[in-house]
């Protein structure tokens, strides 16, 4: 029996709270080879929350630590990756700190029932020698608590929601197109109506036309179930049209977070600003400027603000001190000492 049922008064409050709250999370790769310690601080002090019924976007380039963050939240860590500090709290697991420290039987019950995952390569996710229907059985049957006939009816009804015919259950993954396979993985991830879905680059491998359909369908399913989604991609165009709030990662840290339209209209961090200004648009002939310098190494990141070597606004202070994440407007946080100058620059 859940806490909410024992104490009905607590329920509205719980519904408004975040589904996932990440506080000052540090997840490092720690290597100890021949007496040499090497630490790669892939996630270094990240705080954010995903609210009920929203799509939270996470943007960042390769080696910014976004995949490590996702792995850590999903509890899919293997050495040398370990959580060094901070905590992850789920609304559907009271009191436990993240999936990595929860007892195994609880993890088994929670995974896929409350927390599911849409992965990038649909071809490598679906078992090539099992029919789609068998995969549904493997993933979802024990969580649904239905008999065989009821389960099959539920699966067919759910497939209709993602515009797939019931006949795909008899098909093998290779018989389906890339778009259909990605729909299958989305159907798999949503069939248990989980509160929280992690989507890691789910449409990157798809063509633009198919991508648009899949994203529209993903949004409608999310809305219907009022789930919360952590949506990771480096494609700013996808973020612009899909996500409600957007967090920008750079070198293992969150540098800016705001409602998505605000990120595009009023970026306050120099990196975000640059990222948005460098995106080409059809019908806009202004030249785009690429960012100078190279992405920092996470094994030996720059001192102070990690963006300072590539930043045109950098001052002496940025080289020494780490800028804290500060609230600058409702739902808008940014980690930059020069944020007012950035905003004032056209």
């Amino acid at each position: 029996m859940s806490a909410a049922m024992r104490n009905p008064a607590a329920k509205p409050e719980a519904a408004q709270g975040p589904v996932v709250a990440v506080r000052d999370l540090r997840a490092w790769y720690r290597l100890r080879l021949f007496g040499v310690d090497r630490e790669v601080k892939a996630v270094d002090g990240i705080t954010f929350e995903v609210r009920k019924d929203e799509i939270y976007g996470l943007a960042g380039e390769s080696s910014s630590g976004k995949s490590t963050l996702v792995k850590t939240i999903a509890g899919a860590m293997r050495p040398p990756l370990e959580i060094v500090g901070g905590e992850i709290q789920f609304s559907f697991m009271d009191g436990t700190m993240g999936l990595n420290r929860a007892p195994a039987d609880l993890v088994e019950r929670v995974r896929w029932r409350h927390l599911s995952y849409v992965m990038q390569g649909s071809m490598s996710v679906l078992n090539p020698v099992r029919r789609i229907g068998t995969s549904f059985f493997d993933f979802a049957f024990r969580h649904m608590g239905l008999d065989n006939a009821g389960f099959e009816a539920a699966v067919v009804a759910h497939l209709a929601r993602v515009n797939l015919p019931a006949s795909v259950l008899k098909a093998y993954p290779h018989e389906l197109s890339g778009g259909m396979r990605q729909r299958v993985t989305i159907a798999l991830a949503t069939i248990c109506r989980p509160q929280f879905i992690i989507a890691d680059e789910p449409t990157t491998a798809l063509d633009v036309v198919v991508q648009k359909d899949v994203l529209a369908m993903f949004r409608s399913i999310q809305r219907e179930m009022a789930s919360s989604v952590l949506f990771v991609t480096h494609d700013m165009g996808v973020h612009a049209h899909l996500t409600d709030r957007l967090g920008i990662m750079y070198a293992g840290r969150l540098v800016e977070e705001a409602r998505t339209p605000d990120v595009f209209a009023r970026p306050r961090h120099p990196y975000t600003r640059h990222l948005i200004h460098s995106l080409p648009r059809i019908g806009d002939d202004r030249p785009r400027i690429g960012l100078e310098g190279t992405p920092p190494s996470l094994a030996n990141p720059p001192s102070g603000c990690r963006f300072h070597p590539r930043c045109v606004f950098a001052t002496e202070r940025c080289r020494v001190e780490v800028p804290p994440m500060e609230q600058v407007a409702p739902d808008h946080r940014v980690a930059c000492f020069e944020k007012d100058r950035v905003e004032a620059t056209p």
């Binding site: 633009v208 899909l242 059809i282």
Partner: peptide, 30 residues
């Protein structure tokens, strides 16, 4: 690209997800 004529080119252009211009509504907005 400013004014595609063929239906396929039109579909292709409409499917491009571009960064938001000020005041533009996201395609999959609630």
């Amino acid at each position: 690209l400013a004014d595609p004529k063929h239906p396929y080119s039109k579909t292709l252009k409409e499917s491009v997800l571009e960064p938001l211009a000020p005041g533009e509504r996201p395609l999959f907005a609630r």
